[in-house]
Simulated assay, not measured.
Amino acid sequence: MSFLGFLLLGLIAGAIAKLILPGKQGGGWLITLLLGVVGALLGGWLGSAIFNVDMGGFFDIRSWLLAIGGSIVVLLIYGLIVGRGSKARS
């Protein structure tokens, strides 16, 4: 998969992860892109390490499921970090 394809996959996976998770998550499209790309990397790494599944091409369903799953995990961690910091300031 090309670099631009991977960025697009990360952006879409991050946006889908934000839609799946309940509540209001902060951040704009740049944070969504970064969280999605990190999530896609995490999902690909976990998929290969645990399930012995590699990231396929852009249109492969495994790539999308791994990227979205990784993005959900990263978004949950991001919400815990950012939520904890904002509560401490109140």
Rank of each mutant, 00 (worst) to 15 (best):
S2L: 01
S2D: 14
S2P: 10
F3W: 10
L4V: 10
G5E: 15
G5Y: 10
L8V: 15
L8K: 10
L8D: 03
L8R: 07
L9M: 15
L9S: 03
L9W: 10
L9A: 07
G10M: 03
L11P: 00
L11W: 02
A13R: 02
G14V: 02
G14Y: 00
A17C: 05
K18I: 00
L19P: 00
L19V: 11
I20H: 04
I20P: 06
L21M: 09
L21R: 04
L21E: 06
P22R: 13
G23T: 09
K24T: 11
G26R: 08
G26F: 04
G27T: 03
G27A: 02
G28C: 10
W29N: 09
L30I: 13
L30V: 15
I31M: 14
I31R: 12
T32Y: 05
T32W: 04
L33C: 11
L35R: 12
G36D: 03
G36E: 07
V38R: 02
G39A: 04
A40Q: 06
L41K: 08
L41S: 10
L41E: 15
L42K: 04
G43N: 08
G43F: 04
G43E: 09
G44N: 07
G44E: 06
G44C: 08
G44F: 02
W45T: 14
L46T: 00
G47A: 06
S48R: 13
S48N: 15
A49Q: 12
A49V: 12
I50S: 07
I50Q: 07
F51H: 08
F51K: 11
F51W: 12
N52S: 14
N52C: 00
V53T: 14
V53F: 09
V53Q: 15
G56F: 09
G57K: 07
G57A: 06
G57D: 13
F59R: 06
I61M: 15
I61E: 12
R62K: 13
S63G: 11
S63Q: 07
W64A: 05
L65P: 01
A67I: 02
I68P: 01
G69K: 05
G69F: 05
S71G: 14
S71N: 09
S71D: 10
I72P: 04
V73Y: 04
V73F: 14
V74N: 08
L75H: 05
L75P: 00
L75N: 11
L76W: 13
I77T: 13
Y78D: 14
Y78A: 15
Y78L: 07
G79Y: 04
G79H: 09
G79K: 08
L80Q: 15
L80G: 15
I81Y: 15
V82G: 00
V82W: 06
V82P: 01
R84I: 12
R84C: 05
G85N: 14
G85S: 14
S86W: 15
A88W: 12
R89G: 10
R89K: 14
R89C: 03
